[in-house]
Computed example of a mutant assay.
Amino acid sequence: MKLSRRHFLAGGAACAAIPVVTIATTGSEAEPQKENLALVFDQTKCIGCEACSEACREANNVPEGVSRLNIVREGPLGEGDDKHYRFDRQSCVHCETAPCVSVCPTGACIRDEKGVVDVVANKCVGCQYCIAACPYRVRYVDPVTKAVDKCDLCRKTRLKEGRAPACVEACPTKAVVFGDLNDPNSEIVQVLRAKQTYRDKVALGTKPKLYKVPHGKGKVI
Rank of each mutant, 00 (worst) to 15 (best):
G80P: 04
G80E: 07
D81L: 11
D81C: 11
D82P: 01
K83R: 12
K83E: 15
K83W: 08
H84I: 05
Y85A: 12
Y85W: 12
R86K: 13
R86T: 11
R86I: 08
R86W: 02
F87P: 00
F87T: 00
D88L: 09
R89E: 09
R89T: 10
Q90R: 13
Q90P: 06
Q90C: 13
S91F: 15
V93S: 11
V93P: 08
V93L: 13
V93R: 02
C95N: 02
A98K: 05
A98N: 09
P99M: 02
C100M: 06
C100N: 03
V101Y: 08
V101E: 08
S102N: 08
S102I: 03
S102W: 04
S102L: 05
V103C: 06
C104V: 00
P105Q: 04
T106M: 01
G107L: 04
A108H: 00
C109T: 07
R111Q: 12
R111L: 15
D112C: 03
E113D: 11
E113Y: 07
E113W: 09
E113R: 10
E113V: 12
K114N: 06
G115S: 06
V117H: 15
V117P: 10
D118E: 13
V119A: 00
V120L: 10
A121T: 12
A121P: 02
C124W: 02
C124Y: 02
V125S: 09
G126C: 10
C127E: 01
Q128H: 12
Q128G: 07
Y129G: 00
C130Q: 05
C130M: 14
I131N: 04
I131K: 11
A132G: 08
A132F: 08
A133D: 00
A133Q: 02
C134H: 05
C134G: 03
C134T: 01
Y136F: 12
Y136K: 05
Y136N: 02
R137G: 10
R137L: 13
V138T: 06
V138G: 05
V138W: 05
V138H: 09
Y140R: 11
V141H: 06
V141T: 14
V141N: 10
P143R: 08
V144E: 14
V144I: 12
T145N: 14
A147D: 07
A147C: 12
V148Q: 02
V148R: 00
C151G: 09
C151F: 14
D152Y: 02
D152L: 01
L153W: 05
L153F: 07
L153K: 05
C154W: 00
C154G: 05
R155F: 05
K156E: 07
T157N: 12
R158P: 02
R158S: 07
R158W: 14
L159D: 15
K160P: 04
K160V: 08
G162I: 06
G162W: 04
R163A: 10
R163Q: 15
A164I: 15
